[in-house]
Simulated assay, not measured.
Amino acid sequence: MAGHAVAPRREAPFRATTRRAVSRRRKKMAVVRLGDGSRRPRWFMGGAPEAAAAVGVLVVAMYRRALRRLRACYAKAIRDVLEGAALVGAVRADAGV
């Protein structure tokens, strides 16, 4: 044991001095709530339920129109893929592959 020298213990540069200093909980993000602070329900469009219903009808119509366009586009894409596959099959048949 005479030949073994023990180096003095070094302190870690960023070591917490107390157990309380190390926090395992994440800090909550700051949240800002807009409004006057009251919890009462508010009517959409300034208190007129009829206006809100009209806007809802318009939104439904817009979504239906978009879905109709999407269906048409999808059908066209499928037709193009099938035509392309048929064309490739015909070319391969002519080449004897």
Rank of each mutant, 00 (worst) to 15 (best):
L70F: 02
A2M: 02
V60L: 11
A2N: 06
D36W: 15
A7H: 08
V59Q: 14
A90P: 00
A85K: 09
R15D: 06
V81D: 02
V31E: 14
M1D: 12
A53N: 11
G47E: 14
P41Q: 14
R25N: 12
D80N: 07
G96C: 11
M29Q: 14
K28C: 10
F14G: 05
R20G: 07
V6D: 09
Y63F: 06
H4P: 01
E83F: 15
R79K: 08
L87V: 04
F14L: 12
R33Y: 02
H4M: 07
V59R: 14
A85E: 07
R39A: 06
V31G: 09
R20L: 09
G56M: 11
P41I: 10
R79L: 03
A66L: 05
A85D: 08
R65W: 15
S38I: 05
R33F: 03
A48Q: 14
G46T: 02
R39N: 10
L34F: 06
A72V: 06
L67S: 10
L70R: 13
A52L: 04
A5N: 11
C73A: 08
D94A: 10
V88P: 00
R33M: 09
R10T: 01
G56N: 14
R26W: 04
T17M: 12
C73T: 08
A7V: 02
V6N: 11
A72D: 05
K76H: 07
P41W: 06
G89R: 06
A85P: 01
A95P: 00
G47M: 15
A93E: 04
R92V: 02
M29V: 15
Y63K: 01
A93C: 04
R39G: 06
R40E: 09
M62G: 05
M62I: 10
P8N: 06
M1C: 12
A75E: 12
R69C: 01
E11C: 12
A51Y: 03
V6Q: 13
A21E: 08
A93H: 05
K27A: 13
